[in-house]
């Protein structure tokens, strides 16, 4: 369970609490939260040092800010080393409710899919459906991904995803750096990983500020479109043979 956290001193404990309650609800799952503190300038590291052990969580504190992509990749590397069967990616700001985790972990665990995306936009989803601008952006990226690699994902900017051990191992070697939510679908699709989308409800952020501001959105869209297109022609590592150890 990889949780990137950048300046989330107020949110991170609540996220871990929720995961703890999931642990009680699913006693057969061995859940290991991996919090990746991406060079936070606030007290996130201090908070983690104090509470991580109480929640059975591991944490990685990066000495410099390397961005969400590289932060998640660090967590993936550790998860792969721990031979995780399913790797869940969950934002550290608490917008992904833990009780929704089984919705995307289940299909990966049963082998129905290799990448399960928690989506706000498919039928059955509820809760936070974000701003109109963000919706427009998401629609645009969704079309772009469909155009580039022929897979359809409605909520391409969702940071709430479950990966099979295989997919996680693959991504730990080539997770995109700049705009990883959208970009990651290109290498995954190019190497033939099965991707599916599942309805979840998300919450709006209660505290802290989101990293995307509407002012920069158009420029942002152009940059993402460019980076994603480049991914289409970039050399890719192979996916390693069979599934990792069961």
């Amino acid at each position: 369970m990889v949780i990137p956290a950048f300046n989330e001193e107020e949110n991170i404990e609540r996220v871990l609490q929720e995961i703890d309650s999931l642990r009680r609800a699913r006693p057969r799952w061995r859940i290991v939260p991996i919090v990746v503190n991406d060079g936070s300038s606030d007290r996130t590291e201090e908070v983690l040092e104090k509470i991580a052990a109480d929640y059975g969580a591991r944490f990685i504190s990066l000495p410099l800010n390397v961005g969400i992509g590289r932060a998640v990749q660090t967590g993936l590397k550790l998860a792969v080393r721990l031979r995780a069967q399913v790797v869940l990616q969950l934002d550290g700001d608490g917008q992904h409710p833990a009780e929704q985790i089984p919705v995307i972990v289940g299909p990966v665990l049963s082998g129905k899919t290799e990448v399960a995306v928690g989506s706000r936009y498919v039928a059955g989803a509820g809760g936070n459906v974000s701003t109109r601008l963000r919706q427009a952006g998401t629609w645009f990226f969704s079309r772009l991904i469909k155009l580039l690699v022929g897979i359809s994902v409605q909520d391409v900017t969702s940071g709430f995803r479950a990966f099979s051990g295989d997919a996680a191992e693959f991504l730990s070697r080539c997770y995109p750096d700049d705009y990883p939510e959208v970009q990651a679908y290109v290498p995954l699709a190019r190497r033939g990983f099965r991707i599916s989308e599942h309805a979840v409800s998300m919450r709006p952020r209660t505290r802290g500020i989101s990293s995307i501001t509407p002012l920069k959105s158009v420029y942002y869209m152009i940059k993402v479109a460019f980076a994603t297109s480049i991914d289409l022609i970039r050399p890719l590592p192979r996916r390693r043979g069979g599934p990792l150890e069961r």
Binding site: V36, G39, A53, R58, F59, I60, S61, L62, P63, L64, V66, G67, R70, Q73, T74, K77, L78, D177
Partner: peptide, 21 residues
């Protein structure tokens, strides 16, 4: 290279912390 070093440093530090524990 910086990012790779930072990642490995973080991973190593976590490992040391757990080993110490």
């Amino acid at each position: 290279e910086k990012q790779a070093i930072v990642q490995n440093l973080g991973l190593l530090e976590a490992r040391v912390r757990e080993l110490e524990a």
